[in-house]
Structure formats: C-alpha cells, structure tokens
Design a binder for these strands. Structure first.
Lengths: 237, 237
DNA sequence: CGGGCGATTGACGGTCATCAAGCTGTGTGG
DNA sequence: CCACACAGCTTGATGACCGTCAATCGCCCG
C-alpha cells in the first residue's frame, strides 16, 4: 500500500482508536455516547477516483473522512466544474439543506470514510447540545473558508491564487502531520485549476513562473517551498 | 421615511410582533423562551452606509436583520473588496470561529437590526437543541449559497454572472414580498461589481447589453425582467 | 444654473483562455 | 532492454474577454 499524503495511522474498527477523533465532529462525545455512536457508523474504503456521493443524488448518508483526500465540487450543466474544497481527514461531508446533495465528492487517492445513515445520525444528534454546538463550529469554520475562497476567486490574480492555494494547503497539512517545507499535491493540475477558477495551462505556467522566481521547486507529486515568505506575501497581498 | 425595498412592516418592540420571526433563527422558540430572548436583544437603527461591524473588530455581538439591506464583504490589505453576500430581513449575522470578525457588514439603505450580546446569546442557546438545530440549518443554507457563489465567481462569464445575480436576487425578494417582474436594486453598481468579481464598467456594459437584447429594462433604482426565461437560461447554463 | 456623484460609453491593453505541439515519466509488450 | 503508448504536464502562439483609463452623460440637490 502506498503511503498516504497525510501521516495519519490506519484506524481500527473502534472510535476510541480513531486517529482523527480530535479533529472530527465526534470530539466532544463522552465514552458512553461514543459507544452508541460507533453503532451508527460503518467504515468504508474507496479506490482512487471513485465517487463517494454525487450532486443531485438523494442524501442518504453523511461521511466522516478518516484517511486520504477528497475533492468536493459542483458541476454546471455544460460540464464546467468548480472544486469548492479539498477534504482532509477529520472533515465531515454531506450535510445539505435539501433532500439532495448540492455537490459531488470523490476520492483523489485511496480513501476511507466513516459512513452514517442520515436519519440515524440526525436522531442521535437531535438532543445533544454539545454535539450540535460542535457541528455548528465546523459549519461556521467552513463558511469562513468558503468566504476566503470567494475573495480568491473574485479578486485575485493567477499568481496570487496559486500562492494562496499552496500556503493554505500547506497549513492544513501541517496541522495534521506537523510542519515541513515539502508540500505534497495529490490532486492533479486540472483539480487545482478547477479549484482556483483557472485553466490547467495557466496553473502550469504559474507554477513554472514561481519556480523560476525561486519561490518553489517543483518535485514529483508536489512542490517544495524554497521561499515561504515570498509565497506568503503573494498569498496575503 | 422612504419606503423599504422589501415589503416588511415596521417591527414593534416585541418579538411576538416581529415580522421576520418566521424567516429568522428565533422561529422555533416557544412563548416563554421568546420572552426571555426578548430581554437579550436590543433593536438598533443604522443610517445608509453606516458600518454595523467591521473585519478584524472583536466580535461582541450578533445581529438579526429586521429591515433593510446590508452588504457583507471582505477586504484585502490593498483595498480590493469582495462582497460575499447581501443580507435581507431575517438573516443572522456575525457568527465567527475566531474572536474577531472575519468580514465587515454595512447598511445599504436605512437598516434596523436586533443586536445580541455574544456571550448572553451563547449562554441562551447553549442548551437548547431546537435553537441549535435552527442555527445549523441557517449555517448549512448559507454554506450552500456560498458554494453556488464560488461556481459563479470561478466559472461563469460576465453575462452569466449578471443574469444569475438578477435571478437570485429576485427570487430572494419574492420570498419576502411576493412575486413581481420589477427587481429593485438598492445597492450601487460598484457593490454589484464587487459581488460578482467584476468591475463597475463591465457590470454597466452587461446591463446595457441585456437591455439591448430585450432581457431586462433598466429603470431607476432597479431593473424590470422583460424576458425572465432568457435570464433564467443564462443563469442556469 | 452649476456642482457633484453615480452610471454609461469608448478606446486600448493585459491577463488569462484557447488551440496546438511537444515533453516527461510510467507501464507494457516485443 | 528498448520501443511504444498513453496520460499528465509543460510550453508556445494567438486572441477574446474583461480590466484600465478617460471622457461624457444624467440626475439630484443646493
């Protein structure tokens, strides 16, 4: 088995052993709640590029990402794609305000998730204020990310977009695996383009430009930040 | 006093009389809860263009919009602005995952809001699952809007952006005031531009183009949808 | 009537998309 | 071991869309 992008150890069958517990929505559950919660979820694996759920499908389940990376995206009728986020271990996916999913999610590399039936999950959460508050916290956090992303999409140049993406992605990885100058990029250039509202060619050119300027070094499967300060300056500007 | 964009009657001092109750986060509160809740909030007015709260300010309060329209936006250090949304009566503003506001909000026309102290509000909500669920519902709804907006910003042409904005804005107004072909636009062209990730000139040109094509008619303070189907087609495409 | 602000229109240019080769690395089969 | 294919990425040439700069218009209000 290939090594994962993020250094999270394989999880056992039980929540108590779960490596993403602390990052996850289940963090505030106490011992007896966790045991009950455990009964609701089933761990599932997905192969690279498999779809976990798709836009317009009926929402039957929620998903807690345990291992791997997923892309979360919306499609326009004519096929244009906007990736609204990359999900990492600990992220909770699938909440919707309608009966159907508003977006699709698929595995980038091999992925394992904890899957919960929607109604069972809802019944479980219904009367648990600490869990509901936790869900809120995650939702508000995602909202903030979403708004940052709107600024990026609406108001930044290609170079700023790429730099912002790299810094943001590195920061998220650092939270999971500890700091490092090397930034693995498991997603394709096309994924990055669709995340940044650019074309694959522009992304590629911008990477090359940043490399020529000594900001990054392009290595197989990712980049290495040679001048993190310059990159951060571009991202902040 | 000028007539408001949205046909919501002036609110009294008391929640029971509140015209936006049903749209608002306080919808699920029962009679005795509402009386307690009433004590936490204070109704405040803002003049056109006044700032209700600003990015980076400490978060001391949350706001429930009662009347008027607000723009909610983020600024980059160099002054570029991205409007992340327009708020209408019933919208709840100010939640943040940090101690400071991540964005600014100001009144477009005259505005009245219900203001809640953050800690008092949090204490009140803390152990009320039905209220927490309601807050979740609102957050998930906003998240969906945010993701739709990302698609718009990242993957749509100027013409599609403007059409999508008009249709979306009309739909929101219709929910509050009932259907109508006329679409009041209380915000400036600059606001629209900053919402759509365009410049004011492009917005203006696109309005003119849509008018020439017979899709809309530009009237003082707004537009009239002459061919809603064509507009909707542009918005969906 | 004149000042001022927001909106519109025009001319021009830059950034990024499009179209089209070429490149690189990886896996496959002779 | 090398030829080959294939997919993903890079690079180049060209052009469109939209941003920039600047002038003008229209309207409100003094």
């Amino acid at each position: 088995m290939k090594t994962s992008v993020v250094a999270v150890e394989p999880t056992g069958h039980f929540c108590v052993d779960c490596s993403v517990r602390q990052f996850s929505l289940c963090a505030p559950l106490d011992k007896s709640e966790i045991r009950e919660f455990e009964q609701l979820g089933r761990q599932i694996q997905f192969a690279p590029c498999e779809t976990v759920f798709a836009q317009e499908e009926m929402t039957t389940s929620f998903y807690n990402l345990l291992e791997g990376v997923m892309r979360v995206y919306k499609l326009l009728p004519d096929g244009r794609r906007q990736i609204v986020g990359f999900a990492l271990p600990g992220d909770f996916l699938g909440m919707s305000d309608t009966a159907r999913h508003g977006f699709s999610a698929d595995a980038i590399g091999p992925v394992s998730v904890c899957r919960f039936g929607k109604s069972a999950f809802s019944r479980f959460a219904e009367d648990k204020p600490h869990l509901l508050r936790r869900i809120n916290e995650l939702a508000v956090h995602e909202l903030n990310q979403a708004r940052d992303h709107m600024v990026l999409l609406g108001r930044r140049s290609a170079e700023e977009k790429v730099a912002t993406f790299l810094i943001g992605w590195r920061d998220r990885l650092d939270q999971l695996r500890g700091a490092s100058a090397s930034v693995p990029l498991p997603m394709s250039r096309q994924d990055i383009a669709d995340y940044l509202g650019l074309t694959i060619e522009t992304v590629s050119r911008t990477f090359t430009k940043l490399e020529r300027e000594g900001v990054i070094e392009i290595i197989p499967g990712g980049v290495c930040l040679r001048d993190p300060e310059r990159a951060a300056a571009l991202a902040a500007a």
